[in-house]
């Protein structure tokens, strides 16, 4: 299945901003993080199609996954 992965802030360093990538069925968000060598402990926000999701969520075809470190402002 194809997933769009968007990375933000320092997660982009030596990786990418946005990429369309292929994963086997049953892939979780944690699997994607591992594959991208992003320490799950550093992930602050996860969104699929703009809604919050957890690391153990199983991804579906054409999901848009956004990964952010913990960030804030205001």
């Amino acid at each position: 299945m194809w997933i769009t992965v968007r990375l933000f802030a320092n997660f982009r360093e030596n990786r990418f901003k946005e990429a369309r990538r292929q994963y086997p069925p049953g892939t979780t968000i944690a699997d994607v993080a591992t594959e991208l060598e992003i320490d799950p402990g550093l992930i602050g926000m996860i969104f699929i199609h703009g809604r919050a999701a957890e690391l153990d969520r199983v991804l579906g075809e054409d999901d848009v996954l956004a990964l952010f470190p913990l960030l804030g402002g205001g």
Partner: peptide, 17 residues
């Protein structure tokens, strides 16, 4: 986060959600 990107780091977060 704040020392590196400043508060404007929120632009992409708020866009995403």
């Amino acid at each position: 986060g704040l020392p590196t990107y400043g508060t404007a780091v929120l632009v992409n977060i708020l866009h995403e959600i």
